[in-house]
Amino acid sequence: MPRSNAIENWVSSFGGGLIAQLENFGRFWMFCAATVSYIAVDLFSVRGWKRLLPQCYFIGTRSVPVIMLTGTFVGMVLLVQGYDQFDNAGLIFQLGGIVNISVVSELGPVLAGVMLAGRVGGALTAELGTMNVTEQLLALRSMGAAPIRYLATPRFLACLLLAPLLTCYANIMGAFGAWLIFAVVKGTDSSIFWSSTQEMVEYWDLWTGLVKAVLFGGAIGMISCYKGFHCKPGAGGVGQACTQAFVASFITILAIDLFLNMIMNGLYERWYGFRSLI
């Protein structure tokens, strides 16, 4: 008998877990719908902008230094890694273009996104989670103010709008970092670097990167707000929510990146044909 009991327990706990997961999933999408539903009205109201701008300052302006640093390092690392290989193969005149393509279409947005998830996502989740466990969200509701509209919409919107802008900073600094190693450290002629960049990097690469950044920003904002709004009570609950928000944002960024690469490559081939970089 105990054996069948164990199986029964296992099945029931598995089923319970599955239902809880599905419920969670449904709640997340309801949350997204509610957050998005306030965007249109809030963009045309003074109150909406009053809530949005401080978030833009915190999420955007305050992130610029770390994002620029991230971009610089990405460019430098790529160049250091590729230099000897390309030099040996006699392809050094292509290196600038290759590095910059990977920066603007892939590594700039992804690493800016990861940085944003860590810096902003953690802080947003902690702030909203603390408000949740200290009943400030209940207080808002009791005064007739919708917490989602008041708190989640401006944060989501700020992430969505500023992620691409921050990615531009990362891209520019990536190119600069690569150039720094190429011309200053390795002492190669910098005109080779820039001409190959001009020749090889297409607007397509830039746009791919920026589309990714918008989606990453939106995902980070949404996930962080959701986790904050639904965290468990206590300091432990808030901490756990922050961890979950970062992990979920990170994985979502990677998943979006993969799917978007497949879609964008497909579109490119269909419209312009195969593109050879080597």
Binding site: E127, M131, T134, Q136, A139, G144
Partner: peptide, 24 residues
């Protein structure tokens, strides 16, 4: 639902046990 409760809640004040002041 939450929306239709708003006019009712605006007539009621609630002092929370843990105050629930807005930190920011």
């Amino acid at each position: 639902n939450e929306k239709t409760l708003v006019p009712i809640r605006r007539q009621i004040s609630f002092v929370f046990q843990l105050n629930a002041l807005f930190d920011s």
